[in-house]
Design a protein around this nucleic acid. Structure first.
Lengths: 208, 208, 208, 208
DNA sequence: GATGAATGAGCATTCATTCAT
DNA sequence: AATGAATGAATGCTCATTCAT
């Protein structure tokens, strides 16, 4: 395998390596991915990986950082719609998250994080701070706003936020862990059904 | 190295080994637990583990079988209350599941299964068949009954069942993966809040 | 597996164990036969084997002694036919050896001995003294007699004896090591063809 | 434990490893030789063996390929003498084989193959196809030619070929398995005596 | 910067042998 | 005599990491 593109700028290397690592972690998981594989898929030699990352774990952490953060930022940005009722923003946000993940390999991260959380607690910590706490913060803020506006029943905003996200977590775990070959599972339909029940349960009493 | 007197505990051994294995699987995960560790913690030699279990995976399966199955059976048995409205059975069942898991080692299994599902797909398969499919079957059956009785809105029973369980999965993942030392998370309160929203969203329209 | 015949006389035990060991060594070879297997086939427990034999190797040696010696004695006995021409005794002897081995598991011994000769040189030594040297002695004695009687050309009697036996060794190795499933190899025909050529090559010149 | 300077010898390594492996296989047999031993004798670490060979069996096959095949090719090449009578080619070939093996490491292979044939049938298969079948084919072809030319009596060519080779196999087994320290066994003399008897037994009747 | 040869710790599983009962 | 639970040494193979070039 002659290295076709040799003179690639050295700035591109880390990104190329992360892309290769990403594909492989998703395909096989962290433990089953060998540095050799990452190097091979990126078209470099094993030693080169260690020029850019201190260890296999460091590759994983960089990966999470690079692949997840931009999406979190974007999704949070989209919630900043002051004029719109919360009961419209919430489903829009959940559907945005869903479609961001659907088909993308972001789907695989939660399972990877959960899998490695015991071996690498910092990773779980990082994910929680970077993704979970921020998303929960935004959603619970919206719910508070909805309560204040009389759209939403008085509920605990943090737990309500968790309850909004829970089916997404379940769906992701389901799809990446338990679904059988022959089986089909439609994420969008599932989330729609969730919103149908959840928002109805959350809405303030209809005035007669 | 004088070896301690060999103990004879044929009947007790499997349980001792499973207990040791369980602790270690929870601490380190399945892959990172060595048979040597299990043996050492149970106070026997490595070979002894293989007297009672054919392989490391067999240890895990025996563990699931011993720790999980009886609870699944019991919980399913408790749903068989013909006279009672479904909207009363469902919260009762979910609270029963919750209190069965709370504080027990069962809490640890989902994370373990999720973590090892890629390396050991049979574990995931076994868990799905033994626990998930059966629980979902019972709950979706109840929901169908509720729909037929006019208690519950017409919804997809399987997805509705998943949606009832989802917060429990989230809570378990939360508690075993992301919760910080100093933090407190009250599982029962969370589930109550879930039931408050979920059942309200599920209930048939109130006739005026 | 309840031990059906418990009160068996203890004198029978060694023979039963050897029989079991014999079958297994032949089926799987020495190294691949576990003491557990021998015990199981003999219907006793593992520890019992060690009551009668000091080690796995000792089992093997006892086996060789018991299975081979009587046959060697008998075959040698049959050569003691003073009146008969050597050129008649020799083929008769070789055919007797052949038919003794054919179909019997004696066939397996040479390969076993050769296989284990490096690990257990005493075994090879024992076999050589007990079987090879005695058979060669008898045959070379006959050949000497044949030379003296003018039936056989003046040849080196020991090498001639080896040459008479060699095809039998080859046939045995062939049949136990290299023959394919689908293939057939007729030992008797092969030995007949050997005798046809060999005895013709050995016979004294025909006086015109 | 300061580690010695790592050596770089990509080209030399396989040969060094094969040499070490060969010595050990001969001393202890295939099964009793550990990869660790091979590595240690070659002065490298265990992992290095796996850089060059996929498995222990692959080491053995490479060894056979390297040590045996060239000789088989050469010996077969030497039989291609159209003008010469078969009764001259045959002894020349057998003596060529003998002197190729005498004193060389090739002597050890048959015993090794026989020893490991039950545990590793592919080794026996490989040897049969690579060495035995080809040599038998050449010799039986020559014998057929000799029969056609009236030099050789009508005999079964394949069995006759086996009978020509048999004493060589016996001698090799003899020398590597049973010969005592103090004893001497002259391979060349033995083969000469074989040819004396065998070819005389094979030759067509002398016309009176 | 990049390479890739070399390292060596790590691990599930087997099985001959021991010995308390 | 007989049992069988327990032992623990043994081994092929993997792979993250190092480092001389």
């Amino acid at each position: 395998m002659a290295q076709a593109v040799r003179k690639r700028r050295k700035e591109a290397r880390p990104a190329e390596l992360l892309e290769a690592a990403f594909e492989l972690f998703v395909e096989r998981g962290f433990a089953a991915t060998r540095i050799d594989d990452i190097a091979a898929r990126a078209g470099v030699s094993k030693g080169t990986v260690y020029l850019y990352f201190a260890s296999k774990q460091a590759v994983f952490e960089a990966l999470v950082r690079q692949a997840v953060l931009p999406n979190v930022e974007r999704l949070i940005g989209e919630t900043a719609r002051p004029g719109i009722p919360v009961l419209e923003i919430l489903p829009r946000l959940l559907r945005a998250i869903t479609s961001t993940m659907a088909g993308s390999s972001l789907l695989q991260f939660p399972r990877l994080i959960i899998a490695e959380s015991q071996q690498f607690p910092e990773l779980a910590q990082f994910w929680r701070e970077t993704v979970i706490d921020r998303m929960l913060g935004v959603v619970s803020g919206l719910i508070e706003r909805g309560i204040a506006a009389g759209e939403i029943r008085p509920v605990d905003p943090v737990d309500a936020a968790r309850l909004m996200i829970a089916p997404l977590l379940m769906a992701v775990i389901w799809g990446t862990t338990f679904v059988r070959q022959d089986e089909s599972f439609d994420l969008n339909v599932f989330i729609d059904r969730h919103l149908d029940i959840y928002l109805r349960g959350l809405a303030a009493e209809v005035r007669p």
